[in-house]
Amino acid sequence: MEEFRANSGRVGGPFEGGDLLLLTTTGARTGLEQTSPLGYVRDEDGHLLVVASAGGAPRAPAWYHNLLAHPMARVEVGTESFGAVAVPTEGAERDRLFAHVVRQAPGYADYQARVSRVLPVVRLERSFPDAPFTGLVDKLLEVHTWLRDQLRHVVAEADAYFAARTERPGGTGAPPAPLGLQLRQHCLAFCESMHTHHVSEDQGAFPVLAEKYPHLAPALARLRAEHRTVDRIRAELERLLADLTTAEPDHFRAELARMTRELEAHLDYEEEVLIPPLSEIPAP
């Protein structure tokens, strides 16, 4: 990893000339950051694909289990570093992408031949474009825009997922791939990002604003209370996602709709209250 970072992603030895990236995940059990050097292949749309092969070991590598628990990851490739949402592919899509990977890197076919488990193919989707920092107001609006877009994405995927499940015989069969893991990962990524955003406000931005603008105390207290309300709904959604295939559609949709109403109202109020004072603070 030191050689990778010191040489813009190029390394020597047995990996010389290979396409490598560094993937930083959050430990499923420890909650600590862990970085793994991995080979990658780009798909037809330019997305980065990594295979949880573990060199043909019978068990998936730790980084894969980390991504199932915490889909938000950090990717370093060449001189570039960006946040990503990790989405394991499923069914026919996985098979098509694995064949694409094997055409670019035939060694993965050997790894698959050694084990009975199906080697997961994970697509690393950029969480949002990395934009230059131009001020606190722009950063707040950037985060809020991403949260709103991600929530709409989750709602659309949930509607498609449950519609597909209802169309199966008896309305209770397993949904067709790839909506299951895709919905789960996007929803978890949204929940984690929203939680991180609110914690950073409660512990960082709000105390600074309260000291500089005492008259904002009632508004900041309301925003903190709304954070707790939204966080309770987030926890319920994550609990439902633990077994998405048997989740009760009406209950899931009701929680998602309540989350949407609460979050939209919260973001609107936060922008109304915070944009004026934030616009007066010089950009660091």
Score class of each variant (00 low, 15 high):
161 Y>E: 01
114 R>H: 08
114 R>A: 10
171 G>Y: 11
97 L>K: 00
82 F>A: 09
103 R>M: 10
154 V>Y: 03
120 P>V: 10
80 E>D: 12
147 L>A: 13
73 A>D: 00
120 P>E: 09
140 L>C: 00
108 Y>D: 02
171 G>M: 03
123 R>T: 06
141 L>V: 07
89 T>P: 05
94 R>M: 02
74 R>A: 14
145 T>M: 15
78 G>V: 03
129 P>N: 09
72 M>F: 15
122 V>H: 05
108 Y>H: 03
135 G>V: 06
149 D>P: 11
121 V>Y: 04
78 G>K: 01
151 L>G: 12
81 S>L: 09
140 L>D: 02
116 S>N: 11
119 L>K: 05
72 M>Y: 15
178 P>G: 02
135 G>W: 07
134 T>S: 12
103 R>P: 03
130 D>K: 08
118 V>G: 11
90 E>P: 08
178 P>K: 00
111 Y>C: 10
79 T>D: 11
84 A>R: 04
80 E>W: 07
131 A>G: 12
150 Q>D: 14
114 R>L: 13
133 F>H: 08
135 G>A: 09
122 V>D: 04
119 L>S: 03
172 T>I: 07
147 L>P: 14
164 A>Q: 08
114 R>I: 13
123 R>L: 08
130 D>N: 08
100 H>W: 12
136 L>I: 03
100 H>Y: 11
158 A>P: 14
156 A>C: 06
128 F>E: 15
133 F>L: 13
143 V>C: 14
94 R>Y: 00
130 D>L: 10
74 R>F: 12
163 A>Y: 14
117 R>V: 07
107 G>C: 06
132 P>C: 04
176 P>M: 04
88 P>R: 01
148 R>Y: 09
117 R>H: 05
